[in-house]
């Protein structure tokens, strides 16, 4: 009999304890009503992304002069684990330097690891804060040089935000169409960000073969914004 009463009392205690715990839970959940929503109104309000966010890849230009910073060293092309970068470069017959013809990145393949941006000696290829790349076809995800190149203002923003050293103003060279051998020396001196050992050697060996086939006009068109791009370094 006492057992029965004892177990009944225990049962009541148990039930009341359970009810109290449920009440605590309900109360805690209900109190969340008074807190602000943490939802980000994304399409209405773009999220504030940190400067090092690894978004869409892009090519910077010199914020002051607007010239393309790529030196066609192909470091990014080689380091890319997905092989999504494709650089077409041409060895100029006049300067004996690599001239960038086209730069293609397949953003459908890219996994945004940012390795290419780490190896780039001139801080040319960077991850931007843009992530809205949705498109209707795979082929339209392949960005070419024109689509990749940022404007001067954007480049200036990213150079400041990512705290990258600004490219040194190119050495004033009145004799732009100088002979290739002569131009090689100033390039070596002017190398502003020598983080990587001079790797482009293998390319310069290959490049002359392709140079012969390509018409020089095409090269000129591409480099139209600044006539003496090849002499950046």
């Amino acid at each position: 009999m006492f057992n029965l009463i004892g177990s009944a009392i225990n049962g009541v205690k148990h039930a009341l304890g359970g009810l109290y715990q449920v009440k605590r839970g309900l109360e805690t959940v209900a109190m969340h009503t008074w807190r602000e929503p943490t939802t980000e109104a994304y399409p209405d309000k773009a999220p504030e992304l940190p400067p090092h966010f690894r978004g869409r890849l892009a090519l910077t230009v010199n914020p002051e002069t607007g010239e393309n910073l790529c030196i066609s060293c192909r470091q990014c092309e080689r380091v890319c684990p997905d092989k999504c970068i494709e650089i077409t470069a041409n060895k100029s017959t006049e300067t004996n330097k690599l001239e960038l013809i086209d730069f293609k990145i397949d953003h459908g393949l890219c996994m945004f690891c940012g390795l290419c941006t780490e190896v780039c000696p001139t801080y040319c290829i960077i991850n931007t804060n843009d992530f809205e790349m949705a498109d209707y076809t795979r082929s339209s995800l392949i960005y070419d040089l024109k689509k990749l190149t940022l404007t001067q203002e954007e480049s200036a923003y990213y150079f400041a935000a990512k705290e990258m050293p600004l490219p040194k103003p190119k050495p004033a060279k009145p004799a732009a169409p100088a002979a290739g051998a002569a131009a090689a020396k100033p390039a070596a001196e002017a190398k502003p960000t020598a983080t990587v050992s001079p790797k482009p050697a293998p390319e310069s060996a290959k490049a002359p073969e392709t140079t012969a086939d390509k018409p020089a006009k095409e090269v000129e068109k591409k480099e139209s914004p600044s006539t003496d791009t090849p002499s950046v370094n």
């Binding site: 009503t33 008074w34 807190r35 602000e36 929503p37 504030e48």
Partner: peptide
């Protein structure tokens, strides 16, 4: 995103008034 500070019962009373309304 900002980190919300200490939330004690009551001191966020007006925090979400817009949504409740």
């Amino acid at each position: 995103m900002k980190i919300d500070g200490t939330v004690v019962r009551g001191d966020h009373f007006s925090g979400n008034i817009a949504e409740i309304r």
